[in-house]
C-alpha cells in the first residue's frame, strides 16, 4: 500500500507498495472540539488506520466478502456495510469503489479518549457491475463523517456516513 499524504504543502510518501490506484491524501490541522489534547502520534495512527479501512471497504464491496471488513470496521459501520454486501450478493451485483482523494480533518476527540471524529472530503468513482457487466459508473464527491474508536491494536471505524457537504 502507498499513500500520498499532503500536509501543510508537503508531500509525504509512505512507500509500502505501488503508487498506482492510490488516492492522494491531504491532512488538514485538527479543528478540535473536546478538552483532550490530541497527540501527533494519535492523529497519525487514526489517519493511517482510516485510510487502510478504505482498502478493506473497497475489497469487501467488490468481492461481496463481509469478513474483509472485520479488521477495520465495528459497530454500526460494520453492520451496515455487511448488510449492503449481503444485499449485493443476493442481487447478483458488486460495486467497485476507487477513491481518488481524501481531505481529512479531525474535529473531535472525546475527553475520555474513546472516540475520534473526522471529516473526509472524498472523491471516488463508484462502478456497479452485474457480474462482469458494468451497469453504471459515477464520479462522487462527498463528505464522510467518520467516528473511530480504539480497539486492541488499532483504531476502527464505528460510524461511516456520507453527509451533505
Amino acid at each position: 500500500m502507498s499513500l500520498r499524504i499532503l500536509a501543510a504543502g508537503c508531500v509525504l510518501l509512505f512507500a509500502t507498495g505501488a503508487l498506482a490506484d492510490q488516492p492522494s491524501v491531504q491532512v488538514q490541522p485538527p479543528d478540535l472540539q473536546g478538552s483532550r489534547p490530541l497527540e501527533k502520534q494519535t492523529a497519525a495512527a487514526v489517519v493511517r488506520d482510516y485510510l487502510e479501512s478504505w482498502q478493506k471497504f473497497r475489497a469487501a464491496l467488490d468481492q461481496n466478502q463481509a469478513a474483509l471488513l472485520d479488521p477495520d470496521f465495528v459497530g454500526t459501520a460494520r453492520t451496515k456495510l455487511a448488510s449492503a454486501i449481503g444485499e449485493q450478493a443476493k442481487l447478483g451485483i458488486h460495486t467497485h469503489y476507487q477513491d481518488e482523494s481524501h481531505k481529512l480533518q479531525i474535529v473531535f476527540y472525546s475527553p475520555d479518549g474513546l472516540s475520534i471524529q473526522m471529516i473526509d472530503n472524498v472523491e471516488y468513482d463508484q462502478q456497479v457491475l452485474d457480474r462482469d457487466r458494468v451497469l453504471a459508473t459515477q464520479h462522487v464527491k462527498t463528505r464522510y463523517v467518520v467516528v473511530m474508536t480504539p480497539a486492541e491494536v488499532r483504531w476502527k471505524v464505528r460510524v461511516f456516513e456520507a453527509t451533505p457537504e
Binding site: E87, Q88, L91, T142
Partner: peptide, 29 residues
C-alpha cells in the same frame, strides 16, 4: 446502490417507481 444498502425493483418504463417508507433508510450517497 450505495455503500450501506442495495435495492432492486422491477419497473415498467413510463410509470413511476415507488420506494415505500422504510425501504431506503441508510444515509449516504
Amino acid at each position: 446502490v450505495g455503500p450501506d444498502q442495495a435495492l432492486r425493483r422491477d419497473v415498467q418504463l413510463g410509470n413511476p417507481v415507488s420506494i415505500a417508507a422504510g425501504d431506503l433508510y441508510n444515509a449516504g450517497e
